[in-house]
C-alpha cells in the first residue's frame, strides 16, 4: 500500500507539472477568445501552444516547477496514517529525478537541497484533513515563486468594512502587475487570522474555474472584484491587453472582533494541480476535470 501511495503521488506530481487541469485550460481558451489586441492574443497563443507541446512530450510546462504542497483528505478507515508524510517526501524526491522537477527547496544556511525536500518536514508541505470513510484523497499542488512573491496579507481595521476588503484586493492585484505571469487566478481569504486567511486564499485556488462560492453574498463579491481587477487593465503578461484575471475565488471564515484579516494568493496562468483517490484496497482513480 505504501508503494501504491508513493507511485500515485509521483504520478500526480508529473501530471501537475506537465498538464493543466481542464477547467484552467478552458479558462485560458476563453481568455484568448476575448482578447482583441494582437500583443495580448499572441501571448495567450504562446501559452496555449506551450501547454500543448508540454503535454505531448510530457515535459514541465514551466521551468519553475514550484514548491510542492499536498492537500490530503484522510479517511478514518484508510490503512496508512502517520507514515504518510514520509511516503510523500519519498515521492517528491523521486518525482524531482523522474519528471524531472527543478530543485526548488533552498535551505537558509546550506543552499539548495537538490531534491525539493527541506528541513523540519515543512517542505513539501502537507495540509491534512481527517474525514469519514476509508479513502485517501490526494491533491498535489506545485506553486511557482513568481506568483507567490506577489501574495499579500492585510490585517485591516474592522472599521474599514467590506469596502476596505475590496480596496485591499484591488491594491494587491495592481501591485502584482506583470510580475506573477497574468492572466491570474486570484484567491482571497477573509477572516480567521493571519495564517488562516492565507490558507483560505490558497485553498480558494483549487476551486474549479467558473464555480462561485455557494453563499450568494460571497459569490456577488467575487463577481464584483473580478470585474474590478480586470478594469485595472494589466492584461496578459502585463502588456495591457486581454484579461488580468480569468477568475477570482473568495473563501470566508469568522474573525476576531478586533481583526479583519485579508489574504490574497495569486496564481500565474499555470494553475497546476492534480488529484487522485485511493481506496482502502489500493485502487487508484486519477481525477481529471473535464
Amino acid at each position: 500500500m505504501e508503494q501504491i501511495v508513493e507511485d500515485t503521488a509521483v504520478e500526480l506530481l508529473r501530471i501537475s507539472a506537465t498538464e493543466l487541469p481542464g477547467d484552467v485550460l478552458e479558462g485560458l481558451r476563453r481568455a484568448r477568445e476575448r482578447t482583441e489586441g494582437v500583443l495580448g492574443r499572441s501571448q495567450l497563443e504562446n501559452i496555449l501552444r506551450n501547454v500543448e507541446i508540454a503535454g505531448e512530450r510530457s515535459l514541465p510546462m514551466c521551468q519553475d516547477t514550484g514548491v510542492i504542497s499536498f492537500f490530503v483528505r484522510l479517511g478514518d478507515g484508510f490503512p496508512i496514517r502517520s507514515r504518510l508524510r514520509e511516503i510523500l517526501v519519498r515521492a517528491t524526491r523521486r518525482a524531482t529525478e523522474e519528471v524531472p522537477l527543478r530543485p526548488n527547496a533552498v535551505d537558509l544556511f546550506e543552499g539548495n537541497t537538490g531534491d525539493n525536500v527541506g528541513r523540519n518536514g515543512y517542505v513539501p508541505h502537507l495540509y491534512i484533513d481527517l474525514v469519514e470513510g476509508d479513502k485517501l484523497e490526494l491533491i498535489a499542488m506545485p506553486k511557482g515563486g513568481g506568483s507567490s512573491n506577489v501574495a499579500a496579507l492585510g490585517m485591516l481595521k474592522p472599521g474599514v468594512g467590506l469596502r476596505g476588503v475590496k480596496a485591499f484586493v484591488i491594491e494587491a492585484v495592481a501591485s502584482a502587475g506583470s510580475l506573477g505571469c497574468p492572466p491570474y487566478l486570484v484567491g482571497v481569504g477573509v477572516g480567521g487570522g493571519e495564517d488562516i486567511c492565507m490558507y483560505l486564499a490558497k485553498r480558494a485556488l483549487l476551486r474549479p474555474v467558473g464555480e462561485r462560492n455557494p453563499d450568494p453574498r460571497v459569490a456577488a463579491l467575487e463577481e464584483e472584484l473580478l470585474e474590478k481587477v480586470n478594469e485595472l487593465g494589466i492584461g496578459v503578461m502585463g502588456l495591457g491587453e486581454g484579461p488580468t484575471a480569468y477568475d477570482l475565488h473568495i473563501e470566508v471564515a469568522a474573525r476576531h472582533p478586533a481583526s479583519l484579516p485579508v489574504g490574497v494568493v495569486i496564481s500565474c496562468w499555470a494553475l497546476r494541480h492534480a488529484e487522485a483517490v485511493i481506496s482502502k484496497d489500493g485502487e487508484v482513480t486519477i481525477r481529471r476535470v473535464l
Binding site: 508540454a54 514541465p60 510546462m61 514551466c62 521551468q63 511557482g144 513568481g146
Partner: peptide, 13 residues
Amino acid sequence: GYLTGGAAVLAAD
C-alpha cells in the same frame, strides 16, 4: 526582449 512567462517548452525549442 520579453518572452512569454512560463512558456518554458517553447523557449527551450
